[in-house]
């Protein structure tokens, strides 16, 4: 059944043009220069570590490569997501868009998907460089867990971009939104320790607050498959799928919150 808005417009038809516009905007902002930086770092580190870490060259290059992919994508993602709407408000180009037959939530989703496409392209390109380097410099073989760890990096981005975009709409300050997103990222990786602290702390109030924080913040350790590449039994695929679904739903919650805030904004 097709859903129509009160004005008779079909819901969702504007998402793709907005996403396409976001992609073009990011390409123009020379965001892909970060890929060149990645190539230089990886080429350099693979040369250095093949001499410094005998017998573990493949492991070291894989770890550094996946860490760089994650960090570069995180920086690109947070920066792009935070500035997506704020810059348009600052440049007043948003007024022009808001005069068009466009739902505000469509604008948010379109912008969000555009950033994700750029990040996905970045991850695939960097991953290809990493695989090429590993093949050229070591006797490394591709494992399913390696692919899953790259997929999990993208799902972390699905979450953090939604968080950053919503934070930018709520705080309307790019610095605060970036700090909030960064803090979410850090605490998300620290969630197992948060739970441990909550279990051990005596104060009822502090315990409650820590548990609240623990469940409110996404558990990024669940997505951190790159740290689990060396575990003999790996992570069962049914749990991986469950975690990825959790990531999608968590991002959806933030997008709904962001859309609600954006719908109430006065332009």
């Amino acid at each position: 059944m097709e859903t129509c808005s009160v004005s008779g417009r079909k819901n969702g038809v504007n998402i793709l043009p907005i996403a396409e516009y976001t992609i073009m905007e990011n390409i123009r902002s020379k965001i892909f220069y970060i890929l060149l930086l990645f190539i230089f770092i990886m080429a350099g580190s693979s040369l250095v570590f093949s001499s410094l870490a005998p017998y573990t060259e493949a492991r070291v290059i894989t770890d550094i490569g996946l860490a760089c992919i994650e960090m570069f994508t995180l920086m690109t993602g947070i920066f792009a997501a935070v500035n997506l709407v704020l810059q348009e408000i600052e440049n007043r180009t948003i007024y022009l868009l808001m005069t068009r037959p466009l739902h505000r939530w469509e604008y948010i989703i379109g912008r969000y998907l555009g950033v994700l496409v750029i990040l996905c392209f970045n991850i695939i390109t960097m991953l290809s460089v990493l695989v090429l380097l590993l093949k050229l410099t070591t006797s490394w073989t591709l494992s399913p867990m390696f692919i899953w760890s790259a997929v999990a990096i993208f799902f972390k981005m699905i979450i953090i971009v939604a968080v950053a975009l919503t934070a930018s709409l709520v705080f309307t300050s790019s610095i605060t939104a970036m700090a909030f997103s960064f803090l979410t990222w850090v605490l998300g990786h620290f969630s197992s320790e948060l739970k441990l602290m909550a279990e051990r702390i005596q104060s009822f109030l502090a315990k409650g607050l820590l548990y609240l924080l623990y469940y409110a913040i996404p558990n990024f350790q669940l997505f951190n498959l790159k740290d689990k590449l060396g575990i003999p039994e790996g992570m069962p695929l049914d749990i991986v799928s469950m975690v990825l679904l959790y990531g999608l739903i968590y991002a959806a919650i933030f997008l709904v919150i962001g859309s609600l805030f954006f719908s109430k904004k006065e332009f």
């Binding site: 570590f49 410094l52 870490a53 550094i64 860490a67 994650e70 990222w185 990786h189 990024f220 590449l229």
Partner: peptide, 20 residues
């Protein structure tokens, strides 16, 4: 390593320090 989810890479760094 814990805050950024980079335990494996940090272990590599310590191992290289050990070898050196």
């Amino acid at each position: 390593a814990m805050f950024f989810g980079l335990r494996s890479m940090a272990a590599d760094i310590v191992w290289i320090k050990t070898l050196q």
